[in-house]
Amino acid sequence: MTESVPVGRDGIEAGRTPQAQTLQDAQFLTELRQQMLKFARLQLRDDDQAEDAVQEALAGALKNEDSFKRQAALRTWVFSILKYKIADILRYRQRVIATSELGDDEHREQAFMDGLFDSGGHWHKAERPSSWTGPQGGVHSDHFWRVFDACLNGLPEKQARVFMMREFIELESEEICEQLTLSTSNLHVTLYRARLRLRACLENGWFDPSTAEEATP
């Protein structure tokens, strides 16, 4: 499924059309490629497949580059191509992976929930979500995205996959359920657990300065 194309850090031929300028901008392309790789690796957890998906997405972008004039639009567009590639790979993989492998470890989840909520269903004091309004501005930084990366990587695999299909690839619930043969309530609880983990991780790692040092990768 990999086709070989002249794309890479410095593999772009020069001088096609004025619109194609951004894809020939070596620095822009390098950055874009890095972002795409990071995104693809996180979702596929397989470096080779991630490389292939990125390569194919960039090849597709190069073929149709004339239609894209602005760098921002180009980036969004290239990523949307990548998302489709990843969705394809995940769909294919799903067909070959036994459903049992995706089974959650219920003991682990029970322990996790007990760590957050008391027997009456209320937050343990130390786990209560605080307000994120203060340091929101800092979200623009590279440092923040590293924390975000680490938090995503810390999710159990099934939760990470479902969360990314829902929030990165922006698939509808029905489609995720169908792809992963999950019931709707199973999907809901999986997303719920992923969000509980992510928000706790972000709060500890970023929004609450008192614990920021420990959670930084």
Binding site: L32, Q35, M36, F39, R75, T76, F79, K83, P129, S131, W132, Q136, V139, W145, F148, F163, M164, E167, F168, I169, E170, R195, L198, R199, L202, E203
Partner: peptide, 16 residues
């Protein structure tokens, strides 16, 4: 509120 922020963050991250 964090649920909304989380969704925004994830989408921004995905869009690079």
């Amino acid at each position: 509120q964090q649920m909304g922020t989380l969704r925004d963050l994830a989408r921004s991250y995905a869009k690079g």
